[in-house]
Amino acid sequence: MNAVLKETAHAIAPLAVHGLTHCYEGSNVLRGVDLALEPGSVLGLIGRNGAGKSTLIRAMLGLLEPLSGEARVFGEPALKLSDAAKARLAYVPQQPEALAWLSAQQMLDFVGRFYPRWDARFANQTLERWKIQPNKLLAKLSPGERQRVDLIRALASQPELLVLDEPAAALDPVARRELLREVALRAGESGTTVLFSTHIVSDLERVASEIAFLHEGRLILRCGVDDTKERYARLWLPASKSAAAPAQALSRRRHEDGSLSLVVERDAQDRWPEAANLPGARVDALGLEDLFVEIAE
């Protein structure tokens, strides 16, 4: 993690937090999170429900006062952002419910006046393409439609930093794919930095360049998506060889017959731990989903 922080220190990280802790009603939600995004990267924040993803995102953007630690957006303290920094940033909360008393068109008109690079044409075209009646009040739209309107709101401001909290939760598969396409292309072409949280791993595998895995308020893994798939694997050892298991493992699970499953990592020379070469041992490549199930259990 420190390596990442140092690496991005010279270019100003669009989003960075250090030593973030927060609690709700006495129980810790975040326990010391360090995270920084490089410009142009697409970071997928993954974790089980209740792992603290939304809280982390809100703390990163200065939408809550954390118990301790600091959050910066484009180098500015997140709780005291300047108008210039705000204009470069767009955030879509989970299940957005803002301005229910306006119609979709009114809401976009209203918000659009505040953003210097507002793309009204994009907003109108996307409303039409995503089949949302522009004159219907937001209160009368379904949760999925409201989420789409809010995504249009975020994208039309042409942000340099796009933060999406569970953007796909209320969307149907077709709309989800469209959103991912939009996010992927913006990241690739305009260099938009994207942070999105999800519990749907396949979304992440498509568009994310990096993943961060939040588990019980801690960031336990931060890696490039491709690296993760190549660096980690499941090592299975039969009961007779389980004593030879490597001490270093991300997770360790003993089965009923005494055999052992471990999540292991390649060493600096790209080799698996020695136990992998024992007779009867097996190394299985892991998709991200399997990896997370192994670790989160």
């Binding site: 809100r58 953007l61 200065g62 939408l63 809550l64 005291k80 952002l81 300047s82 108008d83 210039a84 705000k86 204009a87 940033l89 767009a90 955030y91 909360p93 989970q94 299940q95 957005p96 419910e97 803002a98 301005l99 229910a100 918000v111 006046r113 505040f114 953003y115 210097p116």
Partner: peptide, 18 residues
């Protein structure tokens, strides 16, 4: 509630300093 007007206003540019 934290998923509606508050985040929108908190991050809306052009409203001036705190």
């Amino acid at each position: 509630r934290h998923n509606a007007e508050l985040p929108l206003l908190a991050l809306l540019p052009g409203l001036g300093d705190a």
